[in-house]
Amino acid sequence: MSDLSPDKARAYWARTSGLMWTMLGIWFFFGFVIHIFAPQLNGIKFLGFPLGFYMAAQGSLIAFVVSLFWFASKQNSIDEEFGVAEDE
């Protein structure tokens, strides 16, 4: 953080932390919250799957993968905006 003023450093960390909490929210929702409703979701059919089963076997996994690629690009654009991305 060679050229970063304290104010800018604080703003950078606030944005980074904000993204962290958003991601933790996504993690908590697809890792836990949605599966609490599995008994109810199982009443709905999706491609033959009971939806509660589908979410645990595939739905949440897809959400995890997509959110991680989104996170990588989002954090990267924050880094670039504050000029703290590595230059190579």
Partner: peptide
């Protein structure tokens, strides 16, 4: 065994 990678990446 999949969701843990979110924690690896963000934290």
């Amino acid at each position: 065994w999949t969701g843990g990678y979110l924690l690896v990446s963000i934290l």
